[in-house]
Design a protein around this nucleic acid. Structure first.
Lengths: 304, 304
DNA sequence: GCCACGGATGAAACTTACTTTCACGAGGCG
DNA sequence: CGCCTCGTGAAAGTAAGTTTCATCCGTGGC
């Protein structure tokens, strides 16, 4: 099963803009200039002719066409009408907050809060829009039938990996997470056909995670990648690719929003797995909740 | 060019489609054929080229252009993108998902994803709305001036605590997180005036966290509570209370959304702290990013 | 009946936009 | 060093959109 053609979301169901942001890093420099213009103001881009857009992006028409093809369009006119549609559907961002914008130097805390929350919420929503339920379903299948599931992640993605592991564990699935690469490699080497390995990496370029996932794949385990970038290295060794949709801004803010998006995906998979055997999962959750009850104070009401 | 249009092209206020159907009777027969096609299926019309549309309307391209002018457009491309936008706007937003709703037993994965994402995004947005910037500011002040900052949390909130610790550490602030209660208690006992202790607990009733926070307070440290419930026990021993706004549903889904909300709050505090000394924080971030660079593959962009 | 007249219309000329081809140059690899 | 690959824009080629203009057809006047 690990040798079947790679399954990933090639359709861009959610938003075209989201789709483009995800592909951004995999584009050539000149195409990136075009992409950034398009993403930052789709409506304006839709109004431009190809020559006009090329000029603004400081490139040639040929590159714009290449960009269209890169993001899966037939040609410029198609991109144009899709952009117009997209821009119309999109509710105007509340106020002056630029989507995916960075925080201005003089910002006060209220602005900071608004900006972060806006970007975080957007990342979550857009991730859900572009998530392919069919791929999720297959991943859920794999986990449900797996002898065991290893979850790998480093740095910030390590928290997410750990969270996933804990969730699976709580509903009685055998799952592991390893904060240490060597231990993870050792574990991966012991995986086999029917097992599942999940690698989480925002950039998709974390060599530690990739390496471990490769090892897992070599042993016959089904491999799942969770990344923000659909064409990053990690996707090349994964049987199933799930992508988040945090807009790339500065590395920092992109990564922050991405982590929330990753958690959302993890939650979806978790609920999907739990839904496969409600009774068992419910029981398991109750038992584990009971286990920590003695660590809770104040019996009753909290809300005022 | 001296030809004056017979219909004074006023700004079409409502929808373009409405506008067109309004002046349909005033159009010439051939133009009416075009108009009817456009009105009956704007999206389809937007997909056609002018030649195509002319053919379907059994007329010439020239007439289509005349039609464009008659309804106040500059030319066909403009009509086309306006139609695309119009058509997109008509599509009803997905479905009225019940806020805070639980996932129905027979739900398929697509529904699960939609529900989770919806609740997650809402929790983040609503948390931001009710967060008090003044309190955040004070917390940021305290952390900025602190000798050191301890972050406590258990279970799922432990991930958030750990994340916060790591973030502060990355920008050069002395911060600690302890997965173990005993160690945490020990650490709290060593805090003093000017230090900060942050306790994270969704329910606000986690005795371990409360206990540690009490200890910290007794030693003179400033105490911060991050919880979903503003009147929970943990708030009684905190100098500063920050609340998340995950709607209470089942414990499970509430906690999932809450965790994202907690992370958002943590991000806000983090950015707030970082903003106090941009140069230093930026430097620290760069240095730490550099430190993991060798663990990334494909230094440039990802190939397609 | 014949002849203007004027609006509607499409064929064809024309212009602009879009697409393809190709050659050059940079950077990587043997 | 030579070979390759890839990104790129100039220019050629094609298709789309626009304008022009002759035709058609009905109308009304002589």
């Amino acid at each position: 099963m690990a040798k079947s053609p790679k399954i990933s979301a090639s359709h861009e169901p959610g938003g075209l803009i989201v789709h483009i942001s995800g592909l951004l890093p995999s584009l050539s420099p000149a195409e990136q200039r075009v992409a950034r213009l398009v993403v930052s103001d789709p409506a304006a881009a839709a109004r431009r002719t190809i020559t006009d857009l090329a000029t603004v992006a400081e490139t040639s028409e040929a590159t714009v066409i290449r960009f269209c093809r890169s993001v899966g369009m037939d040609g410029y006119p198609q991109l144009r009408i899709r952009l117009a549609a997209e821009a119309a559907r999109r509710i105007e961002p509340p106020d002056a907050r630029v989507v995916g914008g960075d925080i201005p130097p003089g910002a006060d805390l209220a602005q900071i809060i608004a900006t972060i929350a806006f970007n975080d919420a957007r990342a979550v929503e857009e991730t859900a829009e572009q998530l392919d339920p069919a791929v999720c379903e297959q991943v859920v299948d794999a986990i449900v039938n797996a002898g065991r599931t290893d979850v790998y992640g480093a740095g910030a993605s390590g928290f997410v990996a750990s969270d996933f592991q804990q969730k699976l564990h709580r509903i009685g699935r055998t799952a592991f997470y390893f904060p240490d690469v060597h231990t993870a490699l050792t574990s991966a080497a012991l995986l086999g056909r029917g097992d599942v390995a999940v690698g989480i990496s925002h950039t998709g370029t974390t060599s530690d995670v990739i390496e471990v996932l490769e090892q897992a794949r070599a042993r016959g385990a089904a491999t799942v990648a969770l990344t923000n970038f659909p064409r990053s290295p990690i996707t090349e060794i994964a049987d199933f690719v799930l992508t988040t949709a945090a807009r790339e801004t500065t590395y920092r803010s992109g990564a922050m929003a991405s982590r929330l998006a990753q958690l959302t995906v993890v939650d979806c998979l978790f609920v999907g797995v739990a839904a496969r055997n409600r009774a068992r999962a419910k029981k398991a959750l109750e038992v584990t909740a009971e286990a920590v009850r003695s660590h809770r104070v104040g019996s009753g009401r909290r809300r005022g």
